[in-house]
Design a protein around this nucleic acid. Structure first.
Lengths: 202, 202, 202, 202
DNA sequence: TATGAATGAGCATTCATTCAT
DNA sequence: CATGAATGAATGCTCATTCAT
């Protein structure tokens, strides 16, 4: 009986695992090649799944892109959840910046996953994927805004906008110039800026 | 004979005009649709040039994209040349920011022309177009760096990086959120920042 | 033991029921969508049977189409059996025409089930399904010929051909023009014709 | 100069000829294989045109089917135009029947081109092709109705309906039974019927 | 040079059929 | 028998690029 359970479980696990593999592969490959230059076959190969089988899990290519987007959203939430364990909002924000700088090589090669995706999808008229990308970025804005608010600073959402905007800008420049150093330098500037903000709670 | 000369001249002029029309159309359409979603036919139509004729002016699609890039570079130089007439470097930099904010509607709809192009081309492995996009951005960096240097500020190139990075970031966010207001808000912040910088020459 | 028997019986009954559901669904869906536009999944869904299970009852899609054909043949036999209870052959034939007219809405929307099936299958080179469709139509021809023969009319098979041909023609036109009225009008004409035939037995 | 004219004319003629070849091939192949079983490649091969080139002349497969339909409409008009030269409406109608019987081999193999097309397209919900097929059949109805009207007979449109309906029915049966003889027999019956109609003009 | 037409490789998607459990 | 999942061959369609005139 446990054998049957295992068997069924394994099947379910396999199916779920495959969907997850496809999602992860889509996130990765789309980040590296862009939406339009990525073929379903590329993703299938990266996930080690037969092409025809992809459509069992995702009805269209856009569905796969949407999955890639939520994969990035998920990664973002994993990060913020970890940062939330830090006691101080300022530390959390600085931790966020540190995480960005930690990804500098990837950013210099392919840009910010969410930002470049939003940039490419933003040129579309239909499909709703552009809105979806906007939502993921808003997730980050909201979290950062929450931290600034906890710090008791005025205009916390504006500060969040400045922070995330800086991140997108430095990622784009690092990528355009192929210089990870941009991330380091601007990251340091952001950290200094965060340190310089007063803590009205004192 | 003068007729022949006229004819040739007119033809040459026509040819140049056609090339220019194609270049301008490429810059515009690619900005709106992205490189991959833009077909040669799209550009030909926008330039009112027969499809088969495009290849007399541009050997490949990439050549057209390169032309779009230099069109943007040219637009940038037109802008900086105009700003250069202002007597004060700080005024010039604030004029640059004002120009960015002036384009907020376009930025909210399609992002920064150069930035989104660099973002899309950055995912390529070959062709050299990514480098080309980097060069256009460097043009902007260099000009801004020059202004900061004239102001006598330390690390002028770093300041330029921060400024351009902020521009790219705010354009991307304005685009992702479809909110021109982002440009206004961040533009004001940049202006304040520029005003806050000391002028060591005093 | 009775439990086992019940179980088997129930299972067998279930299996038969499933087969029947699939057959009925195939007949219905294929009539509505045509053979080529109907997928196995369409039929499985209409029969509320899991896709993978279909192949335990029908080896191929063509087998399902054959089943749809015999379902129509069965419906035809149910009809003629009922008509056979009428005492007079002429009444039976007029009853047949009345039945056709009674289905005018369906005919105007999807044509005659057997006729449209024969039409579509008639374009095939192989598989024998075209012949199968011919047989179903021959069933109708034979029954009608039998009635005309009982009426003692000369060339009963020719009369049957005329009658069935008229039915196929009016169904096709009703369908092509999307006008159920064609069935009514031509049905009345056929009834008048049947009434006008002499009864040599008098 | 005539050379230039010829040259241009030849190009135009070639292009037009290719479109015509594709249209004719579509009409033929679709008649033989049905819409759904016919691939663009089939038609391209039959017309001796590279597959990719088909789309220069027809945007979609449905456009090709529409072209096949109008090809049949054109053939029908050629026929009726020829028949119109006959002095007597009754002769014209009998000529129509004779033409149908003359095509008995084709009808027995593939059915009536327009009828089978209408039958297959009638199962569609969208695209408007079903309506288009209906129009072609209506062309025939109108012409026949006109003849009956000229004969001074009551309910000429009803008579036309009966005539065309008979044609569709006999074509379908000849096809389903694979018996050209059906066309001959029913054709004779129709001719007799036409002869039996009174001529109120006498 | 100018231009409509030609070409063929590539891509997203569908679907009948089979497999593993 | 039951079932979700797997498989791969087709198919319609697009598009950069080339050709013929």
């Amino acid at each position: 009986m446990s054998q049957v359970a295992d068997s069924k479980g394994s099947r379910a696990r396999t199916a779920t695992a495959k969907r997850q593999r496809l999602t992860a592969a889509a996130a990765r490959v789309v980040h590296q090649q862009g939406v339009e230059r990525t073929t379903i076959a590329d993703i299938a190969r990266a996930a080690d799944v037969p092409v025809g089988n992809v459509y069992y899990y995702f009805k269209t290519k856009d569905d796969l892109v949407a999955a890639a987007l939520s994969e990035h959203a998920h990664g973002l939430q994993t990060l913020t959840t970890r940062l939330d364990r830090l006691p101080d909002p300022r530390q959390r924000l600085k931790g966020l910046v540190a995480a960005w700088v930690g990804e500098r090589e990837l950013a210099a090669r392919y840009g910010c996953p969410t930002g470049t995706l939003a940039s490419e999808l933003g040129k579309r008229d239909e499909g709703g994927l552009a809105e979806e990308a906007g939502k993921v970025i808003r997730l980050l804005l909201d979290w950062a805004g929450h931290q600034f608010r906890q710090l008791g600073l005025p205009d916390p959402d504006g500060l969040a906008l400045t922070l995330v905007s800086a991140y997108q800008g430095m990622s784009l420049l690092a990528n355009a110039l192929r210089e990870p150093g941009v991330m380091t330098r601007e990251g340091r500037r952001l950290t200094d800026w965060l340190d310089s903000l007063p803590d009205p709670r004192d």
